[in-house]
Design a protein around this nucleic acid. Structure first.
Lengths: 215, 215
DNA sequence: CCACACATCACCGGATAAGGGGATGTAGAA
DNA sequence: TTCTACATCCCCTTATCCGGTGATGTGTGG
């Protein structure tokens, strides 16, 4: 049972050299080689690949857009992105689009076969620097995927009301009118909030309240 | 210049065999081998490793808790998790704790040296199935990290700088000092920001900037 | 009963922000 | 070249905020 592979890349030299590389593996079969992704869904329907090597920068439609379309039609196909770019946006866009691996082109010669093998066995090959980017991103969004322990500042109910008014951009006067208390009372509450949050200005209060989801 | 490596693992056999593996590389130096992480910070302070191999399951304190402590004290140290477990929770907890790689123990013999090399050169080695889990997780949270359909307010570069200072709680004076411009210039920028964001107070600016991720 | 936390209100003086003007220089686009 | 966007700076007035200090009333719990 051979592994069917297709390539999308606008550079003929790269397509050819990848073809040669793949030939070194007896069970790899190159079933398609395309210079653009405009007809990718049809191309794939005809060539029925198991694995797709996708260049990111191509005329007409980018590889990332293509990945979205392909994954929608053929969710089981494994897609390996290959590019010279390693800017964060492209990396994350590719992953979110549904790519299963991300290989920088300077690793093509040495790592392509290994990477396809990894895909075949359920892995996700990534060039080292890409893997690092992905881990860093995971850490930075950990606040979203993890519950995030919000430190308790012991704000009273009233103080929280005032705080949420502040976050909504109200001035002290407006807050007073809103909560039917005097301007001075608002000030008292705000002073307490300042103490409890260890800040010294409205902007800090708002930033802290939003970032730590106190509101 | 040799690479200093330390191991935390409660299994002596594994520590020993890793030690043997590392000896095959002339520039690897095993500077510490510990059967628990209760004194990890001290252990590390004394042995000064560049890279740590961390087992997850250990008596007393888990490797994940240890990673958090270690990263807080020594953020530059690269930590490679090594375990037989590949449940999602442990993987993501490790990453969020600050681990730079994640290796399953059945890959130890064949991949450990390569993985340490990758760490050394700024990569993030992961066993294939782990990498797949990470990518899948990224995709599943993409709805959270991507759909920042940020309306473009056409802020200039300078205005964005000022804005981010505001969000960090700086006063106009402090911003001026920070950016080496006068108080009046800061004011000019802020006025423009007010216009462009359609707001009328600092708190609104901060709230809008954070909520819409303009910063 | 008495302390304590909470919410309420008040005054003062200094600091800072807001609103509305106008001005200069530079670089790039029309 | 002229127009435009951008960044830079200045002045004046008013509004708002900040910090400190203090006071009153109302509950709750030891």
């Amino acid at each position: 049972m051979s592994l069917r592979i297709a390539i999308f890349d606008d550079n003929k030299n790269i397509r050819d050299s990848i073809g040669l590389l793949l030939m070194t593996e007896p069970d790899f079969e190159l079933v398609g080689s395309f210079c653009h992704v405009l007809d990718c869904v049809e191309d794939i329907r005809e060539s029925r690949p198991d694995v797709i090597l996708m260049d990111i920068e191509m005329p007409g439609m980018t590889g990332i857009e293509a990945v979205i379309k392909i994954k929608k039609e053929f969710p089981h196909i494994q897609i390996l992105m290959q590019t010279v770019f390693e800017d964060d946006d492209r990396v994350f866009d590719s992953i979110c689009a549904g790519a299963s691996g991300y290989l920088l082109k300077n690793f093509l010669n040495t790592k392509l076969v290994d990477s396809i093998r990894e895909l075949q066995y359920g892995g996700s090959p990534m060039s080292p620097s890409i893997a690092r980017k992905v881990l860093n991103k995971m850490q930075s969004v950990s606040s979203v995927i993890k519950p995030e322990e919000t430190p308790d500042y012991h704000l009273t109910a009233r103080e929280k009301e005032v705080l949420s008014c502040l976050v909504n951009g109200l001035s002290y006067k407006m807050i007073g009118a809103d909560l039917n208390i005097s301007y001075e009372t608002v000030r008292s509450h705000v002073k307490k909030i300042y103490e409890k949050l260890h800040v010294a200005s409205l902007t800090e209060v708002v930033a802290k309240a939003i970032n730590q989801r106190i509101v």
